[in-house]
């Protein structure tokens, strides 16, 4: 059997291993990815098996990591870069937004940038400041970048394979509080498209859209709602750029209600774009305004407060109640 039970972190590790085996141009680079195997052990054992030439411990300089990855990509390599934590990506933001995202366009298609930037993101692990942020909207806003986030081990395995094969730069957000969640991974079944949303629970009353760490919360909310006789449909968006609006639209046309859930602050978040577009597409179907559940317009709080800050099951169900109240 090709199906195997593994954690999300292990699935990523296996996916990187496969990519390194399949394509000699694939490189893994980042801080502590070598001997240590990464602070979350996602790259464990890779340097030992694939050499320091292909699995490189980088100097502690994020702009340098992404900037040299661009140069390596110009030279035919396919670098998979690790940024150690969400809050550390900003020294590299200039290289990502100003350079990486635009190389293909400014060369009028002559150059491609097959670079994957892996970023463990989100809260819920009791971390110190700058280790719990969700900056995906800041990347989705940039033309030229693809932005994805798996919610489970199987998607983690396959989506990383697809991201590495993409000729465009992909910002790959890994839900760090789900690293240790286990799921069945079938390494033989061809995956669905990297950017297609997945209806992970069928329902009739309200549609919940989430991605990454919040998919599990929404599934739990749907389970709780079912006990009260409410049928919630849950969509795992999987991709924040592009967004699979067709799948969301089809669902909302049936349920007539939509709640978008993410950890990132609500203001100018992915939910705002989804609300605007779905309102336009489904204007005559909607029974209630599209509601959003997410972080507050405040810096991510100290760990002792994160349970209050993060949208949990109750806040999702509260939004469901409000939606049904229209």
């Amino acid at each position: 059997m090709s199906t195997e039970s593994m954690t999300l972190a292990r699935a990523l590790n296996q996916s990187l291993r496969k990519a390194l085996e399949d394509d000699p141009q694939v490189l893994v680079m980042g801080e502590d990815v070598g001997r240590l195997g990464g602070v979350f052990r996602v790259t464990e054992g890779l340097q030992k098996d694939f050499s320091e030439e292909r699995v490189m411990d980088s100097p502690l300089a994020e702009s340098g990591i992404v900037g040299t990855a661009i140069g390596l990509a110009l030279n035919g390599y396919r670098p998979v870069v690790e940024i150690q934590f969400d809050g550390f990506v900003f020294p590299a933001y200039d290289q990502i937004v100003t350079q990486l995202a635009k190389v293909h366009a400014r060369s009028r298609g002559m150059l491609t940038m097959p670079v994957v930037i892996r970023i463990p993101y989100g809260g819920g692990i009791g971390a110190v400041e700058h280790h719990s942020d969700s900056p995906e909207a800041l990347f989705a806003h940039v033309a030229g970048l693809r932005v994805v986030s798996p919610s489970n081990a199987a998607d983690a395995y396959w989506m990383l394979q697809q991201a590495i094969r993409s000729d465009d730069p992909v910002i790959f957000f890994e839900p760090k509080r789900r690293y240790w969640d286990t799921a069945e991974v079938d390494r033989a079944v061809p995956p669905v498209d990297l950017h297609r949303a997945d209806v992970v629970r069928r329902g009739t009353d309200v549609t919940l859209v989430a991605y990454g760490p919040m998919v599990k919360v929404c599934l739990e909310a749907a389970e709780a709602a079912a006990e009260e006789g409410r049928s919630l449909e849950v969509i795992d968006l999987r991709s924040v750029s592009p967004v699979d609006f067709d799948t969301v639209q089809a669902s909302v046309e049936r349920t007539r209600r939509l709640v978008v859930v993410h950890e990132a602050p609500v203001f100018f978040g992915a939910g705002a774009e989804i609300a605007a577009r779905i309102t336009t597409r489904c204007f005559y179907h909607l029974e209630a305004p599209v509601l959003r559940v997410g972080g507050y317009h405040a810096p991510y709080p100290p760990a002792r407060l994160e349970e209050e800050y993060l949208p949990g099951l109750d806040r999702v169900l509260d939004a469901v109640d409000r939606s049904l109240g229209y």
Binding site: E53, S63, G64, V66, G67, T68, A69, I70, G71, L72, A73, L74, N75, G76, Y77, D94, Q95, T98, Q99, R106, S107
Partner: peptide, 22 residues
């Protein structure tokens, strides 16, 4: 191509050179 943001391409040259050495 020309790089208009000052200094950014020093890293691209370095990465490219790392590839040449590889």
């Amino acid at each position: 191509l020309y790089t208009l943001v000052v200094g950014s391409h020093a890293l691209h040259a370095t990465g490219y050179a790392m590839g040449l050495a590889k």
